[in-house]
Design a protein around this nucleic acid. Structure first.
Lengths: 211, 211
DNA sequence: GTCCAGCTTGGACATAGAGTCCACGCCATG
DNA sequence: CATGGCGTGGACTCTATGTCCAAGCTGGAC
């Protein structure tokens, strides 16, 4: 992997940054073309060269976007919070050559900060910020909005209508929650079988299932 | 003033504490009888021996009250926040002899904590209002916040810790989504079996199910 | 050191829910 | 009346859920 000329070009600076930030930061070189990892210094996860970058969201082709992103927050599987910066590195012709990403583990810093601010601190209670609403209500809402849009009651919806509603629900990842299928089927006034039929038709990338 | 026998008795420990906590803590000896200051080490305000204690609120005569108060928060005239502990020191007969009060200036500590947690911090907040876009990230967020709160890495969480995290996840209806259990178990660094064990314990209203 | 109690774990197991399949019934249209 | 498309119930498979247990591990008491 190190024989990639781009790696040879950028390795020194990556190595330097990795060395500076000690064991709490990793430096990753991505290939924006194949969307795979070229090299990693100080790896914090098990990723290595050749693994997928999973970094497709930053659009290295958009000429209006800046070349440096962040710092933004990322979450590791074990809950560690990372501060990350990404930069698009270009060759002499201005083409995106590699994407470098520096991930700094904020855990130790925040841990130290917690120790400091907890030092001699009065025992305090913690506020509760997070909550989640009823998902079935959201289903009813989606169906209801569509019915209101086309002015047809639920029982008179056409097949295409139901497909459209299903697309919205699918988009909202409704079927990732348990017991969702029967509820949706009921809300759409169709049987469970039909629901799965529609879903299959919706998810089929190829409508031409001839032979 | 130093000829007071009580001051002679307690001075060494007061001086030692004052020396340990450096310039950011003062130690005050109060006379509960006259409600006046007997001596001050490392004074942070202009108070001195003979000044009124203005500390009448802690009832050194109530035998049911504990002898050690705090840490509680106090505010100085200039706005500095103090963490304070007070202790009633008794003579051989059990009578309240003096009240010692340690006032720790939390300003520098909180300042340092702010510096640490600002290090490499994201300049822009992560967009939060995602509904179901990534529920597993929400799991990681909950776990991560807890880890940050108690300053312990995930692997070293105690059983009670995991129960607390599970309570939050349960509250957030996380287990209503499919495939949540294995993900949570992984995030908590616990086997699926243990996960269900903890959950059962959490949902059991009556832990005393003996005979 | 030993012992013990509680915790964790992997795996076996039972069951519910998810998703598939199919034969039948119900309309439309020709 | 025949036909073809669609919806339906029901049976089926398979994945995921949740329970249970025997064995291993850990930490504290002794």
């Amino acid at each position: 992997m190190d024989d990639d000329s781009r790696v040879r070009t950028w390795a020194p600076v990556c190595q330097a940054v990795a060395a500076l930030l000690g064991p709490y930061a990793e430096v990753v070189l991505h290939d924006p073309g194949t969307d795979r990892i070229l090299a990693v210094w100080n790896p914090m996860s098990a990723r290595g060269p050749g693994d997928p970058s999973s970094l497709g969201e930053l659009d290295s082709l958009d000429p209006t976007a800046p070349d440096v992103f962040g710092p933004y927050e990322k979450l590791l599987a074990d809950g560690r919070r990372l501060s990350s910066v990404s930069a698009i590195l270009r060759d002499a012709d201005g083409r995106a050559s590699v994407v470098v990403c520096v991930n700094l583990d904020r855990g130790p810093l925040e841990q130290a900060a917690a120790v400091l601010s907890a030092f001699g601190a009065p025992t305090v209670a913690r506020p509760e910020p997070l909550f989640e609403h009823d998902w079935s209500e959201r289903v009813q809402h989606v169906v209801g909005s569509y019915v209101r849009e086309c002015g047809r009651p639920v029982e008179r919806l056409t097949r295409a209508d139901r497909l459209a509603v299903l697309a919205r629900l699918e988009e909202a990842k409704v079927f990732a929650v348990r017991r969702a299928a029967p509820v949706v089927a009921g809300a759409l006034r169709v049987s469970r079988s039909t629901l799965y039929g529609l879903l299959a038709e919706l998810r089929a990338p190829n409508p031409k299932d001839h032979a």
